[in-house]
Simulated scan of single mutants.
Amino acid sequence: MEGASLVVQTSFLGDTVLTTPLIAHLAERGPVDVVVTPASAPLLANNPSVREIHVYDKRGRDRGLVSSLLLSARLRRRRYAAAYLAQGSMRSGALVFGAGVRQRVGFTTSAGRRFYTRRVDYLEGEHHASRLLRLALEPGVEPSAEMLRPRLFPGQAERDKVDAMLRQWGWKGESFVALAPGSVWATKKWPHYAALAALVNARVVIVGSTEDVYLASEILRAVGARAIDCAGRLSLLASAELISRAQVLVSNDSAPLHLASAVGTPTVAIFGPTVPEFGFGPLAPRSVVLGVTTLGCRPCDRHGPQRCPLGHWRCMREITPRHVADVVQALTAPSARLPTSAH
């Protein structure tokens, strides 16, 4: 296809990471520009497949009609050959329609599908990276594992920042396990990270946002100087750089899981109200998903409600720290057999 492509992805951080295989595939054809939120834009820094980033603050300064029209006008001047709607709202569809992009590709299930010139089936049960990549594949073409690998590109600034942060906490080059205890969805936060840290026979490094500082403090109280607290102290790309150095990441169903997929770090992914069949499980080699598979109430929500609808929250409480620690131990000793269930 001649001409540049436009990718629109204004969903969550993890969605942006999982859009990078689509971006890389399109870049084999020609230049690729991306519309993303201010929060997600740093994830695409240094990415050789991205020509230009258009930051769209849809919930902030750009939430009004005038701002959307101005962005459409700016995009129109780029004369894109095709737009790929990785995020499928009416607003995103109207944005590229207003930009005069002749070929507009999105999912059959998207709210903005009336604006599309080509609609692709949204395959439930398939990984979301694969679903997104199919927007640019010919029908019947199956993506390879290499095609589905997310890509992030921490630079020297991120490496230097991580080096300095680790030295600040007295790190001497020993191996460590990364813990990501946070999530924007309350019921996705496994409550036993402090107990897990006490059981892990290694230094632990805590990653997350400023919203996760209180969770980090619980881990610090449990293990003291054996923990390194990076929560709220690193950018997204620097966090990816940090995770790339870990033996294993333990994470909820949240953005750090996808950062680990992009840098190839084995992941213990803890799923409670959601399930990996929604398409957001780990893609890194030697990763393990844990969940209480015997509960009839799982899954209860596409994202994870702020409270358990039944009040018991067994899907998270019944995943024991001992079991997670055993899985971590198995991942750090490759000859061991990996446990795969919550019990």
Score class of each variant (00 low, 15 high):
299 P>N: 07
159 R>P: 00
194 A>I: 09
91 R>H: 02
338 L>D: 04
25 H>P: 00
8 V>F: 06
212 D>V: 09
160 D>I: 05
319 I>S: 03
297 C>R: 08
73 A>W: 06
286 R>P: 01
163 D>H: 14
327 V>R: 11
132 L>M: 14
309 P>T: 05
56 Y>F: 15
231 A>K: 05
1 M>D: 03
115 F>T: 09
17 V>C: 04
38 P>C: 04
117 T>R: 05
158 E>K: 06
337 R>Q: 14
189 K>V: 15
279 G>P: 07
276 P>G: 09
131 R>V: 11
155 G>V: 12
78 R>C: 05
338 L>V: 14
143 P>V: 12
234 L>D: 05
41 A>K: 03
214 Y>V: 12
290 L>N: 05
217 S>W: 08
70 L>F: 00
7 V>R: 07
311 G>I: 12
254 S>T: 15
290 L>H: 03
277 E>R: 14
116 Y>S: 01
164 A>N: 09
13 L>Y: 04
14 G>V: 06
293 T>M: 05
333 A>R: 15
245 R>I: 11
125 G>T: 09
60 G>A: 07
300 C>T: 07
264 G>I: 12
261 S>C: 10
173 G>R: 10
314 R>P: 00
231 A>E: 07
63 R>M: 06
218 E>A: 15
118 R>V: 04
44 L>Q: 03
205 V>R: 06
223 V>L: 12
330 A>K: 05
162 V>A: 10
289 V>K: 03
219 I>G: 06
3 G>Y: 02
143 P>Y: 13
127 H>S: 10
95 L>P: 03
154 P>M: 10
337 R>M: 10
185 W>M: 11
333 A>Q: 15
197 A>W: 11
21 P>Q: 07
191 P>M: 12
81 A>I: 00
122 Y>F: 15
123 L>I: 14
311 G>Q: 08
324 V>T: 13
307 R>P: 00
19 T>L: 03
294 T>R: 14
209 S>Q: 07
287 S>D: 08
46 N>P: 03
326 D>H: 12
289 V>P: 03
182 G>W: 07
331 L>Y: 08
84 Y>H: 02
87 Q>K: 02
111 A>H: 04
244 S>A: 15
221 R>L: 13
209 S>K: 08
158 E>S: 06
97 F>N: 00
289 V>I: 14
222 A>G: 09
25 H>K: 13
166 L>G: 09
14 G>H: 06
66 V>K: 12
258 H>G: 08
78 R>P: 00
282 P>W: 12
316 M>Q: 15
32 V>W: 04
131 R>C: 12
247 Q>A: 14
178 A>L: 09
314 R>C: 01
91 R>G: 02
276 P>L: 08
188 K>V: 11
71 L>G: 02
294 T>Q: 13
64 G>S: 08
244 S>W: 07
229 D>P: 09
306 Q>Y: 02
248 V>G: 10
218 E>Q: 15
98 G>L: 12
192 H>Y: 13
15 D>C: 05
219 I>L: 08
80 Y>E: 01
134 R>L: 11
118 R>Q: 14
34 V>E: 02
168 Q>C: 03
204 V>M: 10
179 L>N: 07
323 H>V: 14
342 A>G: 15
53 I>W: 01
93 G>S: 02
85 L>E: 01
